[in-house]
Nucleic acid binder design. Structure first.
Length: 204
DNA sequence: AATTTAGACAACCGCAGGAGA
DNA sequence: CTCTCCTGCGGTTGTCTAAAT
């Protein structure tokens, strides 16, 4: 099994097969795609990097604020926190928190004076993100679990190809044929680095 | 200009829980 | 009921790059 950084070619292939089979059965996708990766690795790559709904770049102050608040409330429940931050992954948030906390720890060391009003800032009265969220609502909350919107974002008009083709049917077909040739021409996905280099089909 | 350091991001690992056989 | 496989989560480590010295 291959490890380490993914190549554009691998990304292309993965995007293609996830487009075909959906975001599930990663082990199967890993096998069928011919990628010499574990299903786990494929899933991670998709979730953290290739997912079309992902935001890239640094966190906005609002997002940072929200992370602070949610972490104060839920602790290290990164995936849960991520649900509240559309386009951000648990990994990203986790990384952000890590560097954030490291910075804080260092600052605290320097000062070594335990007044530490900053640590309590996460629950200060000036924070209103959560209250404005009203806990569950936040309209984006469920977007993640809505494959159709994801696919639309990812594949634009071509999503139509998928629509008239129920997943169950696909599964059935896959089960009967071990190998699948993926040659649906997907249009480039904006904001996804993969597409800066490649285009066209993803056959092997 | 070269080197060091810090921050950001990507990826792997181990574990736990759920589903199906 | 239990065993196995798959998936998802959280922790951790590695890599790259920009800023600082």
């Amino acid at each position: 099994m291959r490890k380490g950084p993914w190549t554009e070619q691998e990304d292309m292939q993965l995007v293609c097969y996830v487009g075909l089979f959906g975001e599930r059965r990663w082990d199967f996708i890993a096998k069928v795609s011919g990628l010499n990766r574990t299903g786990k690795s494929c899933r991670l790559r998709w979730v953290n990097y290739l997912h079309p709904g992902l935001k890239r770049g640094r966190m906005t102050p609002q997002e940072e604020q929200l992370v602070l608040e949610l972490h104060a409330r839920w602790g290290n429940r990164w995936s849960r926190i991520a649900l509240k931050l559309p386009g951000r992954t648990d990994n990203e948030i986790k990384n952000y928190w890590r560097t954030h906390m490291r910075k804080k720890a260092q600052e605290r060391k320097k000062k070594s004076s335990p007044s530490s009003s900053s640590s309590s800032s996460s629950s200060s009265s000036s924070l209103s993100c959560l209250s404005s969220l009203g806990e569950p609502p936040l309209e984006v909350e469920n977007k993640r679990s809505e494959p159709s919107s994801l696919m639309t974002a990812a594949f634009g008009e071509n999503i139509g190809v998928m629509k008239g083709y129920p997943m169950d049917q696909i599964w059935n077909e896959i089960d009967t044929s071990d190998q699948v040739t993926c040659n649906i021409p997907f249009p480039p996905i904006p904001n996804s680095p993969v597409w800066e280099y490649t285009s066209g089909s993803c056959g092997r």
